[in-house]
């Protein structure tokens, strides 16, 4: 596995695209800025959706309407997040692919995407009667896990710069 990652890192760093990203001024900061703005949108959408479940925000609006407004924006922004993230990996493959914190971030991201779908199904698509029968506890637990995961992803993203590469 480690050998494969080394090989992939070597191959990526010798591609035309990687060279272009590394040597063209402002490409890496530009990609990072778009990535951060997308992260801000996704994180706020997650915070407001979870906040509604906890009863902190948008209390005068049904949960399903809040989720429709905010959770759907996560799916819209996610492709831009993945694209800018992928271009940053191609531009600096050693900094990311050989970094343990980056691997952790990717694993958490996968889990967060699954949990976004789970929360969406619970809050948006579950009929009101069924939601009441199953109780609030499960939805609250999913929301806590959901918000914690996105916070951890943001923290991991910042710690990549402080983790030595293999």
């Amino acid at each position: 596995m480690e050998y494969a990652l080394y090989e992939l890192t070597g191959r990526l760093s010798h591609t035309w695209l990687s060279g272009f990203i590394q040597t063209t001024p402002y490409v890496i900061p530009g990609l990072q800025i778009v990535h951060i703005l997308c992260v801000a949108i996704v994180f706020t959408a997650a915070t407001v959706t979870a906040g509604r479940v906890f009863g902190w925000v948008e209390r005068d609006v049904e949960e399903s309407r809040v989720a429709r407004r905010f959770l759907t924006s996560i799916w819209k922004v996610l492709p831009i997040l993945v694209l800018t993230g992928s271009l940053l990996v191609v531009g600096e493959p050693r900094r990311s692919l050989l970094n343990a914190t980056f691997g952790l971030k990717m694993a958490l991201l996968l889990f967060a995407i699954i949990l976004t779908g789970v929360l969406q199904a619970r809050v948006m698509h579950l009929p009101d009667g069924m939601r009441r029968r199953e109780g609030r506890t499960a939805t609250i637990m999913v929301s806590i896990a959901f918000l914690t995961l996105w916070c951890t992803i943001l923290v991991a993203g910042r710690w990549i710069a402080y983790t030595p590469t293999a």
Binding site: A40, T44, C151, L154, V155, G157, W159, A161
Partner: peptide, 21 residues
């Protein structure tokens, strides 16, 4: 420093995201 920076990033994201709403 990285710990404070992590909290700063989370707070900035929430500030800007909520202002954008």
């Amino acid at each position: 420093f990285p710990s404070i920076e992590s909290v700063h990033v989370i707070a900035i994201c929430a500030t800007i995201g909520s202002i954008f709403i």
